[in-house]
Design a protein around this nucleic acid. Sequence first.
DNA 1: TTAAGGTTGCAGTG
DNA 2: CACTGCAACCTTAA
Length: 533
Amino acid sequence: MESNALMWFRKGLRIHDNPALDHARRGATRILYPVFVLDPRYLERDPSAFSPGSARSGLNRIQFLLESLADLDKSLRRLGSRLIVLRGGDPADVVIRILREWNIGKLCYEFDTEPYGQARDARVKDFASGSGIEVFSPVSHTLFDPAHVIQKNGGKPPLTYQSFVKLAGQPAPPIGQPFSSLPPVGDVGECENVGVPTIQELGYGSLGQVEFSPFRGGESEALKRLNESLVDKEWVANFEKPKGDPSAFMKPATTVLSPYLKFGCLSSRLFYQSVQEIYTNVKRHTSPPVSLVGQLLWREFFYTVAFGTPNFDQMRGNKICKQIPWSDDDKLLASWRDGQTGFPWIDAIMVQLKQWGWMHHLARHSVACFLTRGDLFIHWEKGRDVFERLLIDSDWAINNGNWLWLSCSSFFYQYHRIYSPVTFGKKYDPTGKFIRYFLPVLKDMPKEYIYEPWTAPASVQRRANCIIGRDYPRPVVSHESASKQCRLKMGEAYALNTASRGPWAARIWRSSAGNSEKTIQLPTRARDSNRNA
DNA sequence: TTAAGGTTGCAGTG
DNA sequence: CACTGCAACCTTAA
């Protein structure tokens, strides 16, 4: 029996290693609709946000998404198809509507582990199943199926990296691309204006002063960047994450493939396989957790814990999160967010975040530690929100996981180890090239004072054309006393957490837990993943 | 109960 | 750059 198929793109914005797309084109499919639905939750303009963009996304990531969609459309057209971009409200409602209107018999989409995606997909799947529509939803965003790893661990997610790695084993290889054309797209009925929009068409036209990220979106760009990253076999083999230079920005010390993994422009399985091939061809190579493959496994680790932990993205009701009485100070928070703390190393990183949507991993550590347990003692959820909005690689599981880590709320507990907002950056960049680039107001400050400009004599400040307190802020805290206070407060909070670990502690979790009871959608079983024609 | 280990601290020394 | 001492957290495995 002939039927129309719908390939619903969300993440997984690629042609290669895309099992859902592969399944959609197979069998008796005569008509294939490749669809992406613009989600107002991420794209609707919010003038009240602290930077241009929507409530949840800055312009850099919106632009990255649109570039990824345009590239996907181009690739689909080469295969005789095209991308249909739909507007009109909640994506689940839109998809349910077109399932009926376009007489869809087969619905394919990549499995999504995030709570928002789970709820969205549950609605669509329920409708489709009730209407006799075949649903195929394979795991292809991650190397492993988080549900399967949790099952192997006795129903609980592994909470240490090492135990996760032991459990995970080897990932499946990417699927080949055994097709050179796709079925044609059918009539889109009453849907109008189904092309990939420009950022101006989304209502962001008047905001031209924003500096856009140097990183362009899309699968083509992802594969190009992957190949360029892997050209230097020695570099790949000797990669050690903690030894990277967070101040390198003209040529970043990492691959910057994270935004492509986030949107699925790049398959993690292809990345994994490509690195493994290099490993087999060199004498020796580094290992997890510090190696390049180790970085991919960190991603898997956080995806798995996030999938199996209710309320993972908040302190309350999160069983793996220390309960810490963070302080509430909107002025201090704003100074951090806007790059106005008076610590050039911190502020330059925050400006890079705003302008590029990307910073080195250790730079993220530096500013996250400063905001939370290191200096300002502000809630990690506030910092998480800022990162989530501004990063082009913003990823729910990884971002929350790392904020839990850096704030010593989970995974990592050595709260006495605090990054210095002065000396940490100086180790890598003694002359302050990074600071001068992202904070031009300090470009003429002598290197002796570039990390602590408030210590520069007035005459030096005048010569550098930068008066501290007028052209650049004084430090919002004294690092010496603030970090000392933070250590004390962390010690007290930890003691309370330990004391409340009795049988009555469960009440705390239950009384503060929000809507942790949610239906979890399971992926289409692996054996249904039909790789053979 | 104890010992070992944990991707990425800092300051000082050679 | 590699090593030490510093002060010291948690979880896991025995």
